[in-house]
């Protein structure tokens, strides 16, 4: 989905203004079409994210990247919020950090994240976030849904028990690979990612077998078969490059 203000406009026709503002007491400057998240990261300030991935369109859905802005009552997702002149942004207030923890805990209760037996153990973004945020126990009851594992594909498998519904797989498949094999069925707590007409991945007529979805998946939900835990490190540095080269953000299927 295109995020406003538009990127990729010709700078001679639409000069973008340079703004100065504060992030965590630090004075920074950036163009008005750079998200607060990206400006913060350029300045070495870390903000946790899950649905965001450099090289894919933004969804603003996981809400982990929320920040406080002085004078604004609502918390704003920094991945889809753009700076204004003299804005004062606080990225790690007590309030924000406690909400981030709770959201992450909710994600842990939603599916069955049994790290000890997961192929991504040690390389999982969800696990890393938990460490980063200092989560030692989950205060809400686990929902223990009974979900399937689909190993019908010759090279990959999908384990819905580990999926956090970040939809990176859906976006990469549509925006970068151009196959749109993945999408999300149902709604609310019963949502689930699917291939084609909710058929076994192995029987998909549209999957090119490129494996990009596996590389972008933050958890062990999508994995390559026959790889040991140590080998399950995901490679995705090619994404921003492909996004730029394919330049097809303008005509992709919005999420």
């Amino acid at each position: 989905m295109k995020i406003h203000p538009r990127k990729n406009v010709r700078s001679d026709l639409n000069p973008s203004r340079l703004l100065t503002f504060r992030i965590d007491e630090r004075v920074v400057s950036a163009h008005e079409d750079e998200s607060i998240l990206s400006v913060a990261r350029q300045n070495g300030i870390s903000i946790p994210t899950l649905c965001h991935l450099d090289g894919l369109s933004e969804r603003g859905a996981c809400r982990l990247c929320i920040v406080e802005v002085k004078g604004v009552a609502r918390l704003l997702p920094s991945c889809v919020t753009f700076p204004r002149q003299d804005m004062e942004i606080i990225t790690a207030s007590e309030r924000v950090v406690s909400y981030r923890k709770k959201i992450l805990e909710l994600l842990f209760t939603e599916r069955n994240h049994v790290c000890a037996v997961c192929v991504s153990n040690g390389h999982c973004e969800l696990q890393n976030l938990a460490v980063e945020l200092g989560i030692s126990h989950v205060r809400y009851p686990y929902l223990y849904p009974r979900l399937a594992v689909d190993a019908s594909h010759s090279r990959f498998s999908v384990d819905h028990n580990r999926c956090v519904l970040c939809l990176r797989c859906v976006r990469v498949c549509d925006e970068i690979e151009g196959a749109h094999t993945w999408d999300i069925m149902g709604r609310g707590i019963t949502s689930r990612v699917i291939t084609d007409l909710n058929q076994p991945w192995g029987s998909s007529e549209t999957c090119t077998g490129c494996g990009k979805c596996v590389q972008v998946c933050p958890t062990g939900a999508l994995s390559e078969k026959g790889k040991s835990v140590a080998e399950m490190i995901k490679r995705r540095q090619f994404l921003p490059y492909l996004q730029m080269m394919r330049g097809r953000q303008d005509e992709s299927w919005p999420k």
Binding site: T109, L143, L165, G186, G188, I189
Partner: peptide, 21 residues
């Protein structure tokens, strides 16, 4: 709200279910 939640954002998708429980 739980069955009408679109499921996009985590707090509403899981929160409605937890509150309902």
């Amino acid at each position: 709200c739980m069955s009408e939640s679109c499921g996009k954002c985590a707090p509403c998708r899981v929160g409605t279910r937890q509150i309902y429980d």
